[in-house]
């Protein structure tokens, strides 16, 4: 793999084809658990792990699995990986496991996982597929982190609350109180807040893309016809 290929994969996953903002796949857990940064990032990372490992596991066997049964086999592999992660979280991050609840096993049904396997891993090498799964997952995690951050600041006035659930009691000091004595804007924490903030994030992304395109166009015309630019 060339450096350019790797760069393309990551550019695709993090920005161009971002699952949360562009493909809009797997939004159900995204909206449900993004009420705080810790919850959001934890589920994002769990999804990333599943995506990276399942893509890496499926790419090398893609030529040995008959086409007719490929979906059951893929789902089986994803389900195994998800369950392993579920066991590990249950054992070592119990309170986080309780908070994320049903959304960990539901990663199996998250369409983005199967979508990347069908679209990418079943046509590419194991290394490229693993990187693609990771990039896509990290793109999702990044959106979840911003979404969770905005909702947490508006809803509770804090950041990173509940970090002790993931990193142990000693991490409690990492919690940041952004706005002291905050009344709490419950709408941000409740489901409608997730939709509103996601909508605003998508709008921001579209605005940035449009602006970049306009700039590129302006530059292009400027370099082609210098006079026009002056006029």
């Amino acid at each position: 793999m060339t450096a350019q290929e790797i760069k393309d994969i990551f550019y695709n996953g993090l920005w161009k084809q971002n699952t949360g903002l562009v493909q809009l796949l797997g939004l159900c857990p995204l909206l449900a658990v993004s009420s705080s940064v810790v919850n959001a990032v934890s589920l994002g990372l769990a999804t990333t792990l599943v995506m990276a490992f399942s893509s890496a596991a499926i790419a090398p066997i893609r030529n040995y699995v008959p086409n007719e049964i490929r979906i059951p086999v893929f789902i089986l592999i994803i389900a195994v990986l998800v369950t392993v992660i579920q066991y590990e979280m249950n054992a070592y991050m119990y309170s986080l496991y309780v908070v994320l609840g049903i959304f960990i096993p539901l990663i199996v049904t998250n369409c983005i996982v199967l979508a990347r396997i069908e679209a990418f891993a079943s046509k590419n090498t194991a290394t490229a597929s693993a990187l693609d799964g990771m990039a896509m997952g990290l793109g999702l995690t990044a959106v979840l982190m911003v979404l969770g951050g905005i909702r947490e600041i508006f809803g509770h006035g804090t950041l990173l609350s509940g970090i002790d659930m993931a990193l142990g009691e000693s991490a409690k000091s990492l919690v940041i109180t952004v706005i002291p004595d905050y009344h709490g804007f419950l709408l941000a924490i409740l489901p409608p807040g997730a939709f509103i903030v996601l909508g605003l994030l998508i709008a921001t992304r579209n605005w940035l893309t449009l602006r970049a395109e306009r700039k590129a166009k302006a530059q292009q015309t400027a370099s082609q016809t210098p006079q026009a630019a002056i006029a």
């Binding site: 699995v65 007719e68 086999v73 089986l76 592999i77 389900a79 195994v80």
Partner: peptide, 12 residues
């Protein structure tokens, strides 16, 4: 196909 599926089921 059946054997293939069986293999992955056992592995899982």
């Amino acid at each position: 196909s059946a054997l293939n599926l069986l293999f992955f089921a056992v592995l899982g």
